[in-house]
Nucleic acid binder design. Structure first.
Lengths: 225, 225
DNA sequence: ATGTCTTTGTGAACGTGTGCACAAAGATTG
DNA sequence: CAATCTTTGTGCACACGTTCACAAAGACAT
């Protein structure tokens, strides 16, 4: 029986072995003392707990470059996600196969969601269309939204939204890059604890929010160009 | 002078106002007691600290759907990122303009990186090519890598890598979705503290790592199908 | 069957981040 | 100029997550 120890796993994953054991312990006591964890059983338990053993039909709305990239993304199928439908508002796209799946027109959105029992929707539309698409998805019964459009979506209670901002990761890299470059001549701003600052998403979020909040009631429009 | 209070900002960003003030205090004392923060000055300071005022030339390698989507992504330019070049290994792509930028052949990768002083590279290639591209980027002087390919990259010390896995966000949604659905009949696994489990990325990472670690030395290949 | 050896599961200590609450600072008003 | 009022900046306490360290459990050898 192939097994793994928490030590091996921790080394491979780059985390502390005690933390890993404690995490596993929340799923139950699947390990055998003196031996380790049965790999196959462990994988099954984690998959099940994570919902990977279920079949999750998803719809992708907005089949531009990003939508097409997502439709072609191999990682979905292997993790229990099935692309139930591709939806686009452009009539010229209708019927055209992307990743082997014919694109359907946005008019059919509600029917598609209902007929396939879709509870997870992916929005890859331009920012302007995102909220409207979101509303329609939610109206049709979708309760989880993955939003790639650069807008904040408003949803009713009970609906989960996760926003993916491709440029945030780049910003984090640039931040560290700046630190690297500034290490030589960093004599002036040495008082700043890096970990806190790097995690200070509050600051970044606030900056985005700062714009329309001028006390004078006018939108000062001072976002960096 | 348009100003904001930490209270307004915190409400807009959905965070605690004290935390926000503390975060800002690391940048210096830019606020005025009794008034708040000068919006314009605050935005400038945060932008500067985050590296948004600098011009960061980036190269995107692998101009498939995802690479094209990234090249077209509007969020980059507005945050100080400039797409210095698009690179693809397919000769048929060479010269073809994507997002207004002609694609260059991978042979020129090193020259492009050096000539443009690129320190940030984006990898949007298939998984098989990612490590090789990464090595060449690093060899040419890139010190930060944003990896969209579904592979773990190995890099020398001093190089930052951030991996973006489009399916992880979906998994998180599916996890919560499963919880929602299971709330009715959740009488058997009630002992699990959700917050910890949801954050337990160690478990997920370990699962990926579990595969090739069988004690018998053979790769058991038990990843969920 | 008994002892030894390995590895789990977890109680306890530690460190870090978050939120409260208030004194200090400065603007504003009379 | 003094009093008042608003909002910052931060010391302090608390809570949470992480890590240490070890007893309990079980396999394996003798």
């Amino acid at each position: 029986m192939p097994t793994v120890s928490s030590e091996e796993l921790a080394a491979a994953a780059g985390v502390n072995s005690a933390k890993l054991r404690k995490d596993f312990s929340y799923l139950g006591s699947y390990g055998t003392r003196g031996v380790g964890y049965d790999v196959e059983y462990l994988v099954y338990q984690i998959s099940r707990e994570l919902g990977l053993t279920q079949d999750w039909p998803v719809v992708i709305v907005g089949i531009g470059n990003l939508g097409a990239a997502l439709a072609n993304y191999g990682g979905f199928a292997s993790r229990g996600f099935r692309v139930a439908a591709l939806i686009d508002a452009d009539p010229a796209m209708t019927g055209r196969p992307v990743a082997g799946i014919p694109v359907q027109h946005a008019d059919a959105l509600e029917d598609i969601v209902r007929d396939n029992g879709v509870s997870i929707g992916v929005i890859a539309t331009p920012a302007g269309a995102a909220q409207q698409v979101c509303d329609r998805l939610v109206g049709a019964g979708v309760t989880s939204i993955l939003n790639f459009a650069p807008t904040m979506l408003t949803v009713p209670d009970g609906v989960d939204v996760r926003k993916v901002d491709l440029s945030i990761e780049l910003q984090i890299l640039a931040f560290h890059e700046q630190r690297k470059a500034g290490e030589d001549a960093a004599a002036d701003d040495d008082a700043m604890p890096v970990p806190t600052a790097a995690k200070g998403a509050a600051a970044a979020a606030a900056m985005d929010a700062a714009d329309p909040k001028g006390t004078d009631g006018e939108a000062p429009a001072v976002m960096p160009a």
